[in-house]
Design a protein around this nucleic acid. Structure first.
Length: 277
DNA sequence: CGGTACGCCTGAAGGC
DNA sequence: TGCCTTCAGGCGTACC
């Protein structure tokens, strides 16, 4: 469930605690959750943290010596910043725990928990390895332009909904924001992706950027699993126009929203505002 | 190419 | 109260 706005919210919550600090201890209790090398050193034990970046739904923690740890939260992944006190109990399903010291030593540990384990951690030896790891991803959805959509989708007969979920087209869109963006752009989710008009690609690119920006402003959407690093919930769910609102009335025209399965995902749309297939 | 199905995995929610 | 079923879904993979 964490999509781009949720992952960006995590990134922003993590940054002040990590950047400029040093990882004094890094441990995994579940080595199979960590790809390539699950040793403390690969998990940045002893490293100074230079930055925390994001592409689409993935996070990267960059050490000043060039090593990188990439996090993908899958659907139930949470990154929690907790006080380092002994008496604060680790949550269940805490797969990786980083203890932070150094200049940013405000006594925290960073915990990655992921009950469903659809996510994962990749330990990478340098920036080039991160580039290869991220090579299959399209440009970040926050900067999505009409040109990108036009080029990636021209000739495609798959539904626009299915193509928006493909991280190779544009990175960061999941089921929630695909539906929200299509509603904003007034495009039916079943429209063949390559058959949109120029104005529609422009509208869709704009809708993607605006809905993601609005969601980030609200701290993302909390349905069940997602929380901010401090444990608080995101506030964008109340602003959803379609996702989770099947049968309720369209905020634009008042007609009941309809739902169906498209690209193996529950999809909600307004058959009035989003026209015909 | 694209649609479809499945497996991975747990917990919340609803039905009885 | 408690058990059972269903659903949620990112992503890889197999298959038609």
């Amino acid at each position: 469930m964490p999509e781009l706005p949720e992952v960006e919210t995590v990134r922003r919550g993590l940054e002040p605690h990590l950047v400029g600090g040093r990882i004094t201890r890094a441990r995994t209790t579940r080595p199979d959750y960590v790809r390539h090398d699950a040793t403390p050193r690969a998990l940045l034990q002893g490293a100074e943290i230079a930055s925390v970046t994001r592409l689409g739904k993935q996070l990267a923690i960059h050490a000043s010596d060039g090593r990188v740890v990439c996090l993908h939260l899958g659907m139930s992944g949470q990154v929690l910043v907790q006080p380092r006190a002994q008496r604060v109990k680790l949550p269940t399903h805490a797969h990786v725990v980083w203890t932070v010291g150094g200049d940013a030593a405000d006594g925290v540990r960073v915990v990655l928990r992921d009950p469903r384990r659809f996510g994962g951690v990749w330990t990478l030896t340098d920036e080039a390895a991160l580039e290869r790891h991220w090579a299959p991803l399209g440009p970040d959805a926050l900067t999505c332009r009409a040109k990108v959509l036009t080029e990636a989708l021209s000739g495609s007969r798959a539904s626009i909904k299915a193509r928006l979920l493909d991280q190779g087209v544009v990175a960061g869109i999941g089921n929630i924001y695909a539906d929200e963006a299509l509603f904003r752009a007034r495009v039916h989710p079943l429209r063949p992706a390559g058959a949109l008009g120029g104005a529609e690609y422009t509208a869709l690119a704009g809708a993607i950027r605006s809905v993601l920006r609005a969601a980030i402003r609200r701290g993302g959407s909390t349905l069940r699993d997602f929380v901010h690093p401090d444990g608080s919930a995101g506030g964008f769910r109340a602003r959803h126009a379609v996702y989770g609102r099947a049968g309720e009335s369209c905020r634009r025209c008042g007609n009941p929203l309809v739902s169906g399965t498209i690209a193996q995902r529950t999809t909600v749309w307004c058959s009035t505002c989003q026209g015909v297939t």
